[in-house]
Amino acid sequence: MSIDLEKISEAITKGQIEQLQEMTTQALDTDTDPGVILNKGLLPGMDKVGQLWREGEMFMPEVLRSAKAMSKAMEILRPRLSEGDLGSAGKMVIGTVAGDLHDIGKDLAGMMFEGAGYEVINIGIDQPNEAFVEAAMKHKPDVLGMSALLTTTMPRMGEVINSLKESGVRDQMAVIIGGAPVTQEFADEIGADLYAPNAGSAVDLTKKYFAQQ
């Protein structure tokens, strides 16, 4: 019996932790490709969560319950994904900018990228501009992700991009930004390559971006 991937997505949006664990195990047992479970089941589910959150249909505890479900499913999926997959998609450095302590979305995005085969280096919250640049120079990531939840800290993202330019490494990576107050317009203004309206869509947007390069 094959597992309905839409049901997996639905279990994520509904935050059904145990059911999702069962379905993920069952899907693997029936030889569903782990990458397919992730890309066609889990990630679309989280994308939907992001949309519902933006629309005010889902509240924070429900989002977090879905994130927990996602994380539990990933625990089951990760060993199978990492058979050759982990790090295969590339490397990512991700962090929250200086003055900002919010990391729910940032950590979710990190988890998604890890699931999608990225080696994720999460440098944490409240990271000064130099920390991003140092991490970028040290790890040479394919993707640099920045998050901010406050309009007061959001401008740090543009500063980091400028510092990356000054250090001569800007062109060696795609910069993706996100966080509640961030918009496509702002991303364009500061010269980010990508803007993700939510953690669930970040991976997909990045994949499409690289496919076009």
Binding site: G15, F59, M60, P61, E62, L64, R65, L101, H102, D103, I104, I125
Partner: peptide, 23 residues
């Protein structure tokens, strides 16, 4: 008044703790 009704008390409490964990 808001979270508990949606996800039950335990998850409600856990969610708020997560939300403000860095505060």
């Amino acid at each position: 008044n808001e979270y508990k009704q949606r996800v039950g008390f335990e998850m409600a409490k856990e969610a708020m703790e997560t939300e403000i964990k860095n505060y």
